[in-house]
């Protein structure tokens, strides 16, 4: 049984924006300096709190996109139309801006580089973010655990981290605008490898995760090997 035991109060910490970089037209990676950051495991997330000058505050959860690196923390945020927090983070935030973060949070949807694999990652849209933290942790640690990634996105312009996906055995499925031999369409059982005792991590919108969980069982995967992270219809 592999899990990460976290047992302590998680205070709000001041985060300062170090830099930002675009991933797609609607998503940015935000690199933060968080003095006192306690470190984290690939797959965990943070709560972000924005507070307006009048005291109104709003909170959202975002996955950590990269392994722990001292006080340096990376999030990738996709803008949700009509959202309250994400449009600010994606469109307006600048280096040296500050907000609060709390974490790391969640010890169940995690992967440690000491685990030998094999690992199957299945991402829907921005669900790639915590899975990319696992891919990056594997590279950082020099792990040779076999990793297979199946990544479903609308079209080629929606792919995050394109240059790094070659690190692992990655297949991109396009649901709306396809390039390559596969026709555009939603994920099917044929898009997923059959069971081979892999630990499976599935992250995406709730409907995607539900569908993939059923397809994995159809492909012979054991429910006990499947870990899921659903981020709901709107991250806000």
């Amino acid at each position: 049984m592999t899990e990460t035991v976290v047992r302590r109060r998680t205070p709000w910490l001041a985060a300062t924006v170090h830099s930002v970089r675009s991933e797609t037209s609607v998503a940015r990676t935000i690199v933060l300096d968080v003095p006192g950051w306690p470190g984290h495991v690939a797959g965990q997330h943070v709560d972000v709190k924005l507070t307006a000058p009048d005291g109104y505050s709003a909170q959202r959860s975002y996955s950590l996109a990269a392994p722990a690196d001292g006080d340096r923390v990376e999030l990738t945020v996709q803008r949700v139309e009509d959202g309250e927090v994400s449009p600010y983070l994606v469109d307006e935030l600048l280096p040296t801006d500050q907000f609060e973060v709390r974490g790391p949070i969640g010890g169940w949807f995690t992967w440690h580089a000491t685990e030998p694999g094999p690992v199957l990652l299945v991402a829907g849209g921005s669900g790639i973010v915590p899975l990319m933290a696992m891919v990056r942790e594997r590279a950082r640690a020099g792990s040779e655990a076999p990793f297979t990634l199946v990544y479903s996105v609308r079209g080629p312009s929606d792919v995050y981290y394109a240059s790094e996906l070659a690190e692992v055995d990655a297949t991109i499925l396009y649901t709306r605008t396809a390039i390559g031999p596969r026709r555009a369409g939603r994920i099917t059982a044929a898009d997923l490898p059959a069971a081979a005792d892999a630990r499976v991590y599935v992250c995406g919108p709730t409907g995607f995760v539900e569908t993939v969980s059923d397809l994995l069982l159809e492909r012979g995967h054991d429910a006990a090997n499947i870990r899921t992270e659903r981020f709901g219809p709107s991250g806000g």
């Binding site: 899990e3 035991v5 976290v6 047992r7 949070i105 969640g106 010890g107 992270e229």
Partner: peptide
């Protein structure tokens, strides 16, 4: 996982596991 923060704040433990 999505509720872990508010439970951690109240209980001081990670409830997800």
């Amino acid at each position: 996982n999505g509720a872990a923060g508010v439970f951690a704040e109240a209980l001081g433990v990670d409830i997800t596991t």
